[in-house]
Amino acid sequence: MQQNHALLRVEDLVLYFRTTQGAVQAVDGVTFDLGYREAVVIVGESGCGKTSLAKAILRLLPRNVDAYSGHVYLDGTDVMSLGDEEFRRQVRWVKMSLVPQAAMNSLNPVLKVGDQVAEPMMVHSAVKKDKALTQARTMFQRVGVPVDFLNRYAFELSGGMRQRVAIAMALTTVPDLVILDEPTSALDVLTQANIFNLLKRIKQDLEISFILITHDIATSSELADRVAVMYAGQIVEVSDAYRFFTEPLHPYSQKLMASVPRLRGDQEPEFITGQPPSLIDLPPGCRFAPRCPSRFEQCKEDPPMVEAHRHQVKCWLYA
């Protein structure tokens, strides 16, 4: 693929965890790329490995890693070949940052939020504290938090404000890429809409790329340029947002779209029978086959990722 045009290219990324029951294949051969100023949404149900994918890209790994391999090209350089210390100095929070899941609860309760937003700059850009705080102040204005909140503690802020602070923290070093892990799932509808307005504005103004990880397809459409559907540790479909939302191809994507209750329009939502497989004991061949309405003989083998109607689909129906 056009490696020169991609900001991020993830190639065959693998992340397994060791447990007493066996290896958990959380991320199993994920490949996708992300252009400059582009937002790609990774959707999937809980337990499909989408958070692990974010952790794998940022190399925020727990101790029980069983296998970690593949390539992550950022701006053309393979950051997987960097040592841990180099990665921390050159990549994490400098070029890529993360708004973690339940970010509102991930703020440090004993530090003022202003100091927390200033900290990445002091660490990575060797900026003095007063200058970092000034920068934090402008960042607060950008994300719509009143500047006098700089001196407050996390518990003094509402959920929506804490989420904004977490976004400010990810933005202070002006990275090229921000990974948002379920940024709005714990928030109310109006706050959710506000946060998405904010993210859209940041995307326009700061020319930042986003990876948005979510289980909520309806709100994901607020930011998506492209959509990648993840199922049982693998990406099963990638396509641009317009094509995906009008005509998803993979049977799982179709089922997922049909399960979304809609406010406008009268389709009855459907549910997907069965349960996602355990990531320890995966079915051979296509992982969705046991639940798939259109499975046939060939689904016993692992389907390749193929190009169909300008989507990329991992399904024998289109091979």
């Binding site: 937002a39 509808v189 109006l190 959710q192 809409a193 506000n194 998405f196 307005n197 859209k200 504005r201 397809i217 309806a218 709100t219 994901s220 459409s221 607020e222 930011l223 998506a224 340029d225 947002a241 317009y242 995906f244 939302f245 009008t246 779209m257 979304v260 809609r262 406010l263 406008r264 329009g265």
Partner: peptide, 20 residues
């Protein structure tokens, strides 16, 4: 406002800001 803020899966959403 609640109705406006609730999204349906639709690619058009990404192009517009919501009136919240």
């Amino acid at each position: 406002a609640l109705l406006t803020a609730t999204s349906d899966p639709d690619a058009e959403n990404a192009a517009t800001f919501k009136d919240v």
